[in-house]
């Protein structure tokens, strides 16, 4: 469905250093800096896949989405989405895709979302009954029936995002580009948006590409992740596999009924969090059974659980420990 080969994108940015003297100097001579937002990025995405773009701020995720949706021209390399080159902005291509940006909205601010829906129906030249059916279906699924008649400016952030999704999906696109769709939403609203995207993907077979800060979003939604760091593709594959490779360890969290004897904990493994009656140990996956058995035998355990380490931490370690030249690791 999507095919990117050796994508590069370089911006020329005017550098304006602080200070009056520098400002004066830049009147005469502007200094430019080349910023490489993407460098030699290649990947293929099959129809119906849900793929997450991960990476720190400024890694090039948004740039990648914009190139894929045809808003930006790549400096070099090639992209095709379906059978189209996005930058041609062919009508058929535009009917096929959609872009949702968590930070920017297409809803008309002073008018109810229903007006934006009506406008998009006209823009995409959709037959009325078909568009009405889609709209009803999406509105029901997101439970926003009473909202679409209220002026957008009166809606909360989460309500607006739901309406954005309806506006973006009205023409039943087969490729969804979602740029931080859950940004700023509270946890339960994040979960609902996530859920909705998964259901849309499963019922229509649409391809979903998503960027997000929230590791949870990506973990819950995308079986496959593409990690971009400083413009380079550094990982492409399954998130759990990545997690296991970076941190082949488990977390054992224990609650105690009374204070354990000093020294006992350290003998079991590396203690990563500790309060009076609670401790969390990091233990290599292979030794978990043994460690649990030992803990139950030697410590005053009231409750014990075994978990994977948090994804945020893994990503931090992964990106922090990245070699500067950024060789591709694959699963």
């Amino acid at each position: 469905m999507i095919r990117a080969r050796k994508l590069c994108k370089t911006y020329r940015v005017h550098r304006r250093p602080p200070g009056l003297l520098e400002a004066l100097r830049s009147v005469v001579r502007r200094r430019y800096e080349e910023v490489r937002a993407l460098c030699d990025v290649s990947f293929d995405i099959a129809p119906g896949e849900r793929v997450g773009f991960l990476g720190p701020n400024g890694a090039g995720k948004t740039t990648a989405l914009k190139i894929l949706s045809g808003l930006l021209y790549p400096t070099s390399g090639s992209v095709t989405v379906g059978d189209f080159v996005p930058q041609d902005r062919r009508t058929e291509f535009l009917h096929m895709i959609t872009l949702v940006m968590g930070q920017k909205q297409q809803l008309l601010w002073d008018l109810p979302p229903a007006e934006t829906f009506a406008m998009n129906r006209a823009l995409f030249d959709l037959p009325r009954d078909e568009a009405d059916a889609t709209q009803k279906e999406l509105v029901d699924l997101l439970e926003i029936g009473p909202l679409i008649g209220k002026p957008t400016r009166q809606l909360s952030l989460g309500e607006r995002m739901k309406c954005e999704l309806v506006a973006a999906l009205l023409h039943r696109p087969r490729v969804l580009f979602l740029d931080e769709p859950t940004i700023g939403l509270d946890v339960s609203m994040q979960a609902r948006v996530r859920d909705f995207i998964r259901r849309y993907n499963e019922s229509t077979g649409a391809t979903v590409l998503l960027t997000s800060h929230y590791m949870e979003d990506v973990a819950a939604l995308c079986p496959r992740v593409i990690v971009i760091d400083k413009g380079h593709l550094v990982y492409d594959g399954d998130l759990r596999t990545l997690a296991r490779r970076i941190r082949p360890e488990k977390r054992i969290t224990m609650h105690f009924s009374s204070l354990p004897a000093p020294g006992e904990l350290d003998r079991l493994g590396n203690c990563v969090a500790r309060s009076e009656l609670q401790a969390t140990l990091a233990v290599p996956a292979a030794q978990v059974t043994e460690a649990v058995r030992a803990a139950l035998g030697r410590l005053p355990i009231s409750d014990i659980s075994v978990e994977d380490p948090p994804l945020e931490e893994i990503m931090q370690e992964f990106l922090g420990g990245q070699p500067a030249n950024g060789g591709v690791r694959s699963a």
Partner: peptide
């Protein structure tokens, strides 16, 4: 950007 993504 949204305007540019419309098929018109």
């Amino acid at each position: 950007d949204f305007v540019l993504l419309k098929p018109a």
